Simulated scan of single mutants.
Amino acid sequence: MNTESKIGVIGIVVEKEASVDVLNETLHKYREYIIGRMGIPYREKKINIISIAMDAPEDVISSLSDKIGNLPGIQSKTVYSGEN
């Protein structure tokens, strides 16, 4: 397990509102690693765009992103600091 802290950003697109409660519960479990969160409702497209900034070991960030991406109607993509 890699315990070196990294800065990462998870970009999330929510297409199904029914998954929002589970998404919020999941994010709450990782709150100690979350630096900030920004949500943008894109009403014209009926989606929500969320950005999560984290400071955590890479495996923790990856685990959260995987859990989010496996929720129905939600897509996620992760970018780490220092990547080319």
Results as ranks from 00 to 15, higher is better:
31 R>F: 01
31 R>E: 05
31 R>A: 09
32 E>C: 01
32 E>M: 02
32 E>L: 04
33 Y>E: 00
34 I>T: 04
34 I>Q: 02
34 I>R: 02
35 I>N: 08
35 I>P: 01
36 G>N: 02
36 G>C: 02
37 R>A: 05
38 M>C: 02
39 G>E: 09
39 G>S: 11
39 G>C: 11
39 G>I: 03
39 G>P: 09
39 G>H: 13
41 P>W: 04
41 P>H: 14
41 P>S: 08
41 P>G: 05
42 Y>F: 02
42 Y>Q: 00
44 E>S: 15
44 E>G: 04
44 E>F: 09
45 K>R: 15
45 K>Y: 13
45 K>I: 11
45 K>M: 08
46 K>G: 12
46 K>R: 14
46 K>H: 13
47 I>S: 09
47 I>A: 03
47 I>F: 15
47 I>P: 05
48 N>K: 08
48 N>A: 10
48 N>R: 12
48 N>H: 13
49 I>G: 04
49 I>R: 04
49 I>V: 12
49 I>A: 11
49 I>C: 07
50 I>E: 09
50 I>M: 05
50 I>P: 00
50 I>F: 02
50 I>C: 03
51 S>F: 10
51 S>R: 01
52 I>N: 13
53 A>R: 10
54 M>P: 05
55 D>I: 06
56 A>R: 03
56 A>E: 11
57 P>F: 10
58 E>V: 03
58 E>M: 02
58 E>K: 07
58 E>H: 02
59 D>S: 00
59 D>W: 02
59 D>C: 01
60 V>L: 10
60 V>T: 13
60 V>N: 00
60 V>D: 03
61 I>C: 06
61 I>G: 01
61 I>N: 00
62 S>Y: 05
62 S>N: 11
62 S>V: 00
63 S>E: 15
63 S>C: 07
63 S>H: 11
63 S>F: 09
63 S>M: 09
63 S>L: 10
64 L>D: 00
64 L>C: 00
65 S>P: 06
65 S>C: 11
66 D>R: 08
66 D>N: 10
67 K>L: 15
67 K>Q: 15
67 K>N: 11
67 K>G: 07
67 K>T: 12
67 K>S: 14
68 I>W: 01
68 I>K: 01
68 I>P: 00
70 N>K: 15
70 N>G: 14
70 N>Y: 14
70 N>E: 15
71 L>I: 05
71 L>Q: 07
71 L>H: 08
72 P>G: 05
72 P>S: 08
73 G>P: 02
73 G>A: 07
73 G>K: 01
73 G>H: 10
73 G>Y: 03
74 I>F: 14
74 I>E: 11
75 Q>D: 15
75 Q>G: 11
75 Q>Y: 15
75 Q>F: 13
75 Q>T: 11
75 Q>W: 14
76 S>V: 03
77 K>Y: 13
78 T>N: 10
78 T>R: 07
79 V>K: 04
79 V>W: 12
79 V>M: 14
80 Y>S: 12
80 Y>N: 12
80 Y>L: 15
